[in-house]
Nucleic acid binder design. Structure first.
Lengths: 184, 184
DNA sequence: GTCTATAAAATGATAGAC
DNA sequence: GTCTATCATTTTATAGAC
């Protein structure tokens, strides 16, 4: 009972700080202070800072797609769902103060850790696959084939969020959505 | 004479390490060791690590556009120049081992430093402006107006490089170029 | 399981001789 | 201008009492 509350508080605090400030700039000391737990409790639940990082990535990945599922559920039609993907990410960026994609951000910091890279890639590939499935459900025809259209949407999404992160603004992802609307 | 050689060596070494490993994970000790200079020499030329960071961004920005100018010069026609932008960035990614955009990467680390954010934004806006100028020189007509087309290319570029950085591969920017070819 | 105290190493930065 | 020696903090992580 108490244990799970503590573990959750550690992970929540670490997650917030890792994204907000960055991974390397966030020290164990700050985490235990803001989570209001004892030093050894952290190391009891997470043997090292790297374990905490991987737990952060795993939980973020899981909640990201859970939240997306709930977001897309009431929306009807593959085209509308595809456009809603932009809204979903814009909404999340607003919530987290426009610092860009969680996975893009951690890649910039923990760039040589294969366990990190594997998780980042798995996360993005799942999104790309979802987009392709939705595109396949549309009756889309043009100079681009379905896979190219899916990649277009995926890259517009990633580009918009990345630029939004650099500009600290929703302008780029909003434009990306408008382009997607014109293309679809 | 010696001074300028030293200063240059410091900046070159720091630039390489900041991009390769990350800013926060690169210590002053490593820089002075790999640049083979004395500790105080670094602080003589760069009062603080932050000054070194800003010098890194400024020199990277300058050499980036210098190199791009030379790259685009022999290429004829705005459409070909626009497509060459993708080649330029793919070439640079290959050279630097596919770790993504320098400016995107530093934003993920030094995210609350306004001096950093301003430089990142200036760099990206200059690229976006260049793309728009080239688009204006084409006789392009479609569902997208010129500014939207420029943004499309810009976002495809940024998305491709960002995803390429996360995947450590040139696959995404190559696809982005193919899409640009189909769209233009 | 949680706590406090502490270790061992690395951090950014400075002092003072040459 | 460059050098070596060093400072005060902060880093991740562990030991041992409760």
């Amino acid at each position: 009972m108490r244990e799970s509350g503590v573990k959750e508080r550690i992970l929540d605090t670490a997650s917030r700080l890792f994204y907000d400030q960055g991974y390397h700039v966030t020290g164990i000391n700050q985490i235990i202070e803001e989570a209001d737990i004892a030093r050894a409790s952290l190391y009891n639940h997470f043997p090292s800072k790297t374990d905490l990082l991987l737990a952060y990535l795993d939980s973020t990945h899981a909640s990201w797609f859970e939240e997306l599922d709930a977001f897309l559920k009431p929306i009807e039609g593959p085209r509308e769902k595809l456009l809603a993907l932009f809204d979903f990410r814009i909404m999340r960026q607003k919530r987290y103060n426009y610092k860009g994609c969680h996975f893009n951000k951690i890649t910039a910091e923990a760039s040589d850790d294969q366990a990190v890279l594997a998780r980042v890639k798995a996360h993005k590939e799942r999104l790309r696959k979802l987009i392709l499935e939705l595109v396949d459900q549309t009756m889309y025809r043009s100079i681009l084939n379905n896979e190219q259209l899916a990649d277009t949407l995926f890259l517009l999404l990633e580009g918009g969020i990345a630029v939004g992160g650099m500009y600290r603004s929703s302008e780029a992802p909003e434009k990306a959505k408008q382009i997607a609307e014109a293309v679809l």
